[in-house]
Amino acid sequence: MTYIRLGYVAMSTELQNASPSQTMTYAQFSKLKDREAALRKLERIAQANLHNCLRLLKHNEANGIEFFRFSSKLIPLADHPELSDWSYMQGVKQETAAIMTYLREHKQVRVDFHPDHFIVLNSPDKEVLKSSVKALTFHYRMLKAMGIPPKHRCVLHVGGSYNDKEQALEQFISNWAQVPVPIQEMVILENDDTLFGVDDVLYLCEKLGIPFVFDLHHHKMNPQGDFGEKWERIVGTWEHSQLPIKVHLSSPKNEKNPKAHADYVEVGEIIELLKGNRGYAAQIDVMLEAKLKDAAVFRMAEELKHAHGFKQVNGACFQFNLSSH
């Protein structure tokens, strides 16, 4: 038997007026003549975003969803070089404390981040590496403020190939030594749909002790052999983590644009994934990367209730019996 939990990304299509990603650009900030008033406006946006995060967590609880990805845009302009004097954590203490209290009372809930693609740890440019570590430090501070153990909470891609993929992998290893240990411990790595496939990411994960987030859609776009044959190794990268193995699932938008995500995730994707697991992982947390967010979770949960080999435990949590397939 394998226990699976379905999750979704950052915002709800079902809950009204609950965006955790309201923002302000630096251009908008600059137009406000009173800097103190502009900072207060930024703080109000950040407070609203975090308040909406808590609303989303409660919405998830009501629907039996125990897995959720936070938006990385919770505090607009937090890392902007022109705002280095802004103590952005001070203005959101009340909101982060409320989330901390909620999560302490709901220990089964898993939350994490997937920072933007501009965070590149294998760049040969020292300034890019420095700004990437700075952006990850923001995520670290947010996790700590919300009382979430930061270890293995931030999914990243390997980065760019810089016209030499092998060298780019070695550059990641070289740069890794310059990343502070608390930030290293926060990182988990995902295979991508263009450059770094399962074998490439496994090489880094096994060498550096990083858990591997397997993305089935990316693997289909950028295959490196049969993922089922590597699954024991993928599961092995989570051996020293307190969190269950995590995967990403999505369906292609259409034939013209197969790499983009569809509104929903086809139920066949999760069956394919679980057959590949062959019982190696007792629990798998499945992040659905779908345009319709929680609506995609609700649809898949409804389909799994009637699918062969699945037994609903609660809302978006299921038991899967491989022997029935």
Rank of each mutant, 00 (worst) to 15 (best):
Y3T: 14
L6E: 00
Y8M: 02
V9I: 12
S12K: 00
T13D: 01
T13N: 12
E14A: 12
L15W: 08
L15N: 13
A18H: 02
S21G: 08
T23S: 14
T23M: 08
T25D: 10
A27Q: 15
A27C: 07
F29G: 09
F29M: 14
R35S: 05
R35Q: 06
A37V: 11
A38H: 12
L39Y: 04
L42P: 06
E43D: 14
R44D: 14
A46S: 02
A46P: 01
Q47T: 05
Q47A: 08
Q47P: 08
R55M: 12
R55C: 04
L57K: 01
K58R: 13
A62N: 12
N63R: 14
G64Y: 02
E66D: 11
R69C: 08
R69M: 05
S72Q: 11
L74T: 01
L74P: 00
A78N: 05
H80F: 08
P81W: 01
L83S: 08
Y88S: 02
E95M: 04
A97M: 15
A98C: 09
T101Q: 15
L103Y: 10
H106N: 09
H106E: 14
V109L: 10
D112N: 15
D116C: 05
H117Q: 14
V120N: 09
V120K: 07
L121N: 04
N122I: 07
V128S: 03
V128F: 03
V128C: 03
L129I: 09
K130C: 04
K130P: 01
V133L: 07
V133A: 06
K134L: 15
F138A: 02
H139A: 06
Y140M: 11
R141G: 11
R141S: 15
L143D: 03
G147A: 13
P150K: 09
K151V: 14
K151D: 13
V155N: 06
G159P: 07
S161H: 07
Y162G: 11
D164A: 08
A168H: 01
L169M: 14
I173Q: 13
S174G: 05
N175W: 05
N175M: 09
W176L: 02
V179N: 00
P180N: 10
V181M: 05
Q184G: 11
E185V: 05
M186T: 11
L189V: 07
F196V: 04
V198C: 10
D199V: 04
D200N: 08
V201Q: 03
L202F: 10
E206D: 12
L208H: 00
L208Y: 00
G209I: 09
G209L: 10
F214M: 01
Q224P: 03
D226E: 14
D226H: 13
E229P: 13
K230I: 06
E232Q: 07
E239N: 13
S241F: 05
L243F: 14
I245M: 15
L249C: 08
S251L: 04
K253E: 07
K256N: 10
K259W: 14
I271K: 03
E272K: 09
R278A: 12
R278F: 13
Q283R: 15
I284K: 02
M287I: 04
L288V: 00
L292A: 06
D294A: 01
A296C: 01
A301C: 08
L304M: 13
L304Y: 09
K305L: 10
F310H: 07
K311G: 12
K311M: 11
V313G: 06
N314H: 14
